[in-house]
Design a protein around this nucleic acid. Structure first.
Lengths: 184, 184
DNA sequence: TAGGTCATGTAAAGAGTTACATGATTTT
DNA sequence: AAAATCATGTAACTCTTTACATGACCTA
């Protein structure tokens, strides 16, 4: 997966491992991200498979290892991209604890849910910022898929936020909801 | 994570590894799932840490290894459950390919998106079935958190489906969207 | 000149999946 | 009798993160 993402970013221009990490952090982190510890080895593997080539360069007075996609790299990328999408039921770790909230005090539950909502709000704000930036700086028609993906992110966070809000509201205002019998 | 989910399921009654796998498949798979290859070793680790105990039993003529949560297991579970939720930007693998769809033919993109929509529809239907079942069989007020989590799942799939639909619609009807210049 | 950011990398550990292996019981 | 399902488990592999290590350059 990561190797394909990297190839995708290399389709338009050469980039270093550092650039790639930065790009992911600032454009795909809401659906996929990676640490340096996986980016650098991935580049090494891609070079071994001849899907990218290494070009040492000095850019802005700084030494950089720039990677360029090869023809077989492009072919490999396109093959991956054109393949049918496999929809994986995605992990939503935050639901795991909530699923078992019947066992914890209602007040703790409400507090934790409010805290979760704040976290979601903060990542939503970050992504909304990135989105406005793109809307100003790039032709969203030209990069419509990326723009649509970004909208997905913003709307998804919005959905999570609304869901939290509804749940908190019911817990606070409907005495029938999550009665405390099961609790300690 | 998995160990805590297992402890959560053991809070109300003893279960075997097979039971736990089945339970996850049929109640949490839309946000977390696990294979036998991780469930059985997880139970072994929990037993080693004295958070569960093993009770061999025959149930319905079948030999089963039933696990029971211990007092320290309950304590460990509650500590985990009551801790603040950390919102992790969740992986949404399907967006990875779409993000780079500028490089593939529009027709392939539309076809793949329609195929994705069908897959989402099918998992949505499955979950909606599970939801109706719970609504009939259990007191959703008593298990309100679980019910709310299920609603999250249903609404999330609904959101993905609407997003796909909107994107497909724009690709098919708006000639300005995703012009084919960048393509081969 | 000290701290921050830029830049690259490795090693160990963690968490999981897939594939394989086994055998009992139940259904067709 | 064969096939399906129930039931448990291991081994190899994959993919990833965290923590560490290094050093250049830039700015206050």
């Amino acid at each position: 997966m990561l190797e394909h993402i990297i190839l995708g970013f290399l389709m338009t221009k050469d980039r270093s491992g550092y650039d790639l990490k930065w790009l992911m952090e600032n454009s795909t982190s809401y659906f996929i991200n990676a640490s340096f510890g996986s980016v650098y080895p991935a580049l090494k593997r891609l070079a071994q498979k001849n899907l990218v080539t290494l070009h040492e360069a000095v850019e802005g007075g700084k030494y950089k290892k720039m990677y360029r996609i090869t023809d077989s790299g492009k072919a490999a990328f396109l093959q991956w991209a054109e393949e049918p999408i496999v929809f994986e039921r995605s992990k939503q770790d935050h639901l795991a604890k909530i699923f078992f909230y019947e066992f914890i005090p209602k007040e703790t539950a409400i507090g934790n849910l409010k805290d979760l909502a704040h976290q979601v709000e903060s990542v939503a704000k970050e992504l909304t910022g990135q989105k406005s930036e793109k809307e100003r700086e790039v032709d969203i028609y030209k990069y419509y898929y990326r723009y649509a993906a970004m909208c997905y992110g913003v709307e998804y966070y919005d959905f999570v936020l609304r869901w939290c809000g509804t749940l908190i509201d019911r817990l606070e205002n409907d005495p029938e909801t999550a009665r405390s019998e099961r609790q300690r």
